[in-house]
Nucleic acid binder design. Sequence first.
DNA 1: CCTTAAAGCTAATGCTATTAGCCAAGATGC
DNA 2: GCATCTTGGCTAATAGCATTAGCTTTAAGG
Lengths: 189, 189
Amino acid sequence: MPRAGLTPATVVREAAVLADEVGYEKLTLAALAARLGVALPSLYKHVRGVDALHQQLAVLPTAEIADVLTTAAAGRAGGDALRAVAAAYRAYARQHPGRYPAAQRAPDPADAEHVAAGERAAGAIRAILLGYGLDGDDAIDAIRMFRAAVHGFVALEAAGGFGLPRDTDRSFDQLIAGLDRAYRSWGDR
Amino acid sequence: MPRAGLTPATVVREAAVLADEVGYEKLTLAALAARLGVALPSLYKHVRGVDALHQQLAVLPTAEIADVLTTAAAGRAGGDALRAVAAAYRAYARQHPGRYPAAQRAPDPADAEHVAAGERAAGAIRAILLGYGLDGDDAIDAIRMFRAAVHGFVALEAAGGFGLPRDTDRSFDQLIAGLDRAYRSWGDR
DNA sequence: CCTTAAAGCTAATGCTATTAGCCAAGATGC
DNA sequence: GCATCTTGGCTAATAGCATTAGCTTTAAGG
């Protein structure tokens, strides 16, 4: 019987694919093992368990989000960059309904790769905020504001939380427009 | 052997208490049955299963949030009301870490009580927005903005997503201040 | 070629959810 | 006050998933 040739990385990557197909909460070691053509306990040679898999699984989408945001911001500034980055974030969440929730898991401080990916994502936003004249603690607050607004929106949207027959695209545009105004008027009362 | 005297309502209410203690994702029929002093399968006389329990469990916190928001808004208007309602929302989420996530489940349109509770919560926000001159589709967008921003913030906060050593209370104040500015400048470019 | 680390396996255990079918508690009707 | 009938709660059985233990054999490396 030849070996499957798995590594922790391949297991986690396949878990990401599977999560997008069946949903994050329905991601199961049993289904993952079947997908990889391997018996369930064999996975324990590569991941410590389902909880560790979830933790590991957070790294990939975090890095992908960082990439997507960085790409979207390239060559733009101000409200232009803000809209592009927000749209890219939302698009990622919709295209990856399984791995996006995985990314919400906070990094283990000991996981340098995960921490770095998170910082890269935050850095993409921070660069835009610099164009609004925001830095230091203001930038931290403004980044948290961006994350709260955009994550909150896509989470509620994915959960079917917007019931009224009003186009969510419009609402999202208004959200980002409001964010833009909030950033521009940061110092005001 | 005397009966436990359970009803669907008591089961769901105890589930809410248990969820706050052990966390929404760790809420289990087995633990709930033990808590109620009953064998696990007995619960099936009151709820159709774990999925139905989750759905039912969404109603209580939605109604409680509606209450909390309504109370907080009473006697206030404008930015004052906005701050009070946002603070009340966040406080509820922190005090009820188990049932708050339960409330994110979208209502079954056939569940009139659930739908009504959601509308009551939205109504509390809508009333405030009226003070900003927002109604119609603008109000819908603005309500979605409020929900996205505040839910996103408390969700990220609860998940430990704000890693930097910056006081989250300050960040929350800034978020709501930004929301207030966005509402006040709604028509602007 | 031999050794050895480890990838993958089977077997076993435990927890959770779910269904089926039984029994008795307690409400209802006479 | 008694008979009846609904139904809440039970035990037993099944199935799925996670986890651990221990074995086998691959395949890399001296």
